[in-house]
Write a protein that binds this DNA or RNA. Sequence first.
DNA 1: TTGAAAGCGATACCAC
DNA 2: GTGGTATCGCTTTCAA
Lengths: 348, 348
Amino acid sequence: MTLQDVAREAGVSAATASRALNGSTRNVQSDNVSRVLAAAARLGYVPHVSAQATAKGSIPTVALVVSDVADPYFSSIAVGIIDAAEAGGLVVTMTVADRSPEREVQLVRTLRGQRPQIIIIAGSRINDTDTRGALIDELKQYRAAGGRVVLISQPELPFPTVAIDNVDGARLLARELAGAGYRRLCIIHAPHRIRTSYDRYTGFVTGLEESGISMDANFAMETEFTRSGGYEAARELVERGLRNIELIFAVNDAMALGVMSALRDAGLVPGRDVAVAGFDDISSAVDVVPALTTVTVPLRTAGLEAMRLALADDDAAGEAGIPTVWIPTAVRLRESTPPVSGRLITVR
Amino acid sequence: MTLQDVAREAGVSAATASRALNGSTRNVQSDNVSRVLAAAARLGYVPHVSAQATAKGSIPTVALVVSDVADPYFSSIAVGIIDAAEAGGLVVTMTVADRSPEREVQLVRTLRGQRPQIIIIAGSRINDTDTRGALIDELKQYRAAGGRVVLISQPELPFPTVAIDNVDGARLLARELAGAGYRRLCIIHAPHRIRTSYDRYTGFVTGLEESGISMDANFAMETEFTRSGGYEAARELVERGLRNIELIFAVNDAMALGVMSALRDAGLVPGRDVAVAGFDDISSAVDVVPALTTVTVPLRTAGLEAMRLALADDDAAGEAGIPTVWIPTAVRLRESTPPVSGRLITVR
DNA sequence: TTGAAAGCGATACCAC
DNA sequence: GTGGTATCGCTTTCAA
C-alpha cells in the first residue's frame, strides 16, 4: 500500500494525497482531504518512513544512547525523554553503549546513518581523550548535516548539556552527615576516569572539609561502579578491619546496596554497626532495611529538560554560548545513617 | 557525503561502490574494494539507512515494544534482545506501550511505517478482545509485507511466541510454601484481565490445592500491578485484621516489596510476623531484608530466544504450527518465608 | 567484473 | 488548489 495506491483510490494525484496526509492540510480542498483520509484508512496505508526520510532528509525520531538499559538510572532518564518526545510526535529509539567509549563513537556513526532529528547521549562520560576527540568529531558532522545533539550528565563537550549537579549533591550530603555527627568515614568510588564517580567523590570530600573534617583521618577505596564492586570493596574493608569507620559512602546506590549486603554477610548490621550512604535514590533505596540515605536525582526531569534543549531554537541562545541546564539534587536522610548519639552538639 | 562522492573519489561507478560497501563483495575486484573502502573512510561516509531502506524495502533493525522501560522486567528482556541483535548486525529500537492495548496497536502501526525486519512485542497481554483483533490485524499486515513477528509472554496470538511458564512457577512456589508449613495465605493479584497476573494466580491456587490446601480457608485481593498496589492492599489487609494470615503471595516482586513496606509501616516484621513471597526475582529481591522468596524468570534468556525465533527460518517449522518456546522458571526460597516450625511433618 | 539506468516511496517546486 | 516532475541516496537488474 503506497501513497500512489491511496491517491488512485481517492481519485487525486500523489502530490495532493501527500499534502492531505502529511504536509500542510491547509492548501487542500476539504472534501479532497476527507476522501484521501478515507482511502488511506480503507487501504490500511502507513506512510513509508524511510521514503519520507530520503525525501525530507531526516526522520522524526530521537535517538537515545544510554550506557546500560537495565540500569534504572538510565531507564528513568529514558522515561522523561520518551514522554517529552511523544508530546512532540517523535519516536524514541534507544541504543546501548555498554559503558564503552569506543562503542559510543561507533554507535553515533551508525545513528548518523539513520538521520534522526535528535541524538541524545546519556551516560557517564569517561575521561578518555582518544575517543573524546572522535566523538566530538562525529557529533559535529551530524550537527553540520542538520541534526541536534544533547548530552546528559557529561559536561565539557561543546554541545548543549543537561548536567546533574553531582558535586553539590555530594557536598551537601557530606555536610548533613557531618552534622549528624559522623567523623570517621570511608568513600567507596569508581576509577576517577568515570566522571560521575569523580564528581561525587570530590564533592563529598569538599563537604567534609567544609565541615572541618580532614580526609587525613579518613580514606577512600576504588572499585567497580557496580553493586558487586561495592560488595567486594566492603568485604575487603571488613576483612582488613574497620578501624572505627563509622560510615561508608558509596558513590552510587547500587554500590551502597552491595556494601550493605557485604556488611550483613559479615554479621554486621548496616545503620547500627556501620552507617551507609549512597547516591541516586533508586527505588530499592527505600525497600532495603535500613532504608538508604542517599541523594535524589530527578532523572525524569533531566530527560524532559534534554528534550526541551533539543527542541529549543538555539539561535536565541546561540550567542550566549553552549546552553547547560543544571539539574539540582537533594539529600534524603534515612535510617541507614542515624545521628551519632552524643555528637550532635559538636556540629558547627 | 553520499555514495556518489565515494564512488567519484575512488574512481568507480556508484554501483561498484555500493557493491563494495554493502552488497556482495565477491563480485568486485579486490583492489576496487580496497579503493572504495579507503575513499569511504577518508570522506567519513556513512550510508543513508533510509535510502537503503527505500531501495531494499526494509531496514536492518528490530523494533521492540515494551510495556514500561523503567520496569526491570522489561529492561532485562531488552538486554537479551540487544545482545542477540548486535551479534546479528541489527540495531534495536525500543518503544513503550505504557501498558495500554490501544497504544500498543497504534505503535505497531507506526513501526510498520519504519519497515523494521523484526517486531518483538514484550508485555503482559491484556485480555481485551477489541484491541486483540486490531493488533492481530496490524501484525498480519506487517508479516504479509515480509516482516517477522515474535511475541514474548503473551501466548494465544497466532505468532511465534516466547512464553514464560508463569502457571507452573507459581504452582511450584505454592507447593514449596505448603511444604514449608504454610496453611493460611492471602494472594494479592492484579485484575484478571492482565494475563501474567491471572496465570500466576491460578498456578498458585492449583499448587495449593495439589498440596491439600483449599482456597476456602484463604483468600485473594485484587489491586494494581505495581509496588503501590501491593502497599495499599497490604495496608488494607492489616487494617481489617490479618486473621491468622501466615503468608502473603504477591504476583510480582514490585508488589511484594510494597507489601513488605506496608507491613513494616504497620509495625510488623516481614518474615517473622507474616511471610511474604513474590514473583520475578528482580534485583532488589536480594537486597531487601529479609530477602524475598520469589520465582526467578530468566528474562535475558527469554530475549535471546525471541531473537532466535525471529531469525529462524520458519519454513521448517511452518507445518508444525506456531512455534512456542517455553521459558522455565525456578523457585527461590529465601528468608522472607522461613519454614513454619512444628509443621514440617504435616507436609505430604 | 563493471557501469548505465530504472526503480524504491515519498516530498516539493513550479506551472497551470 | 492541484497535478506533473525532478529529486533524495541507494540498490539492482540488464547489457556490455
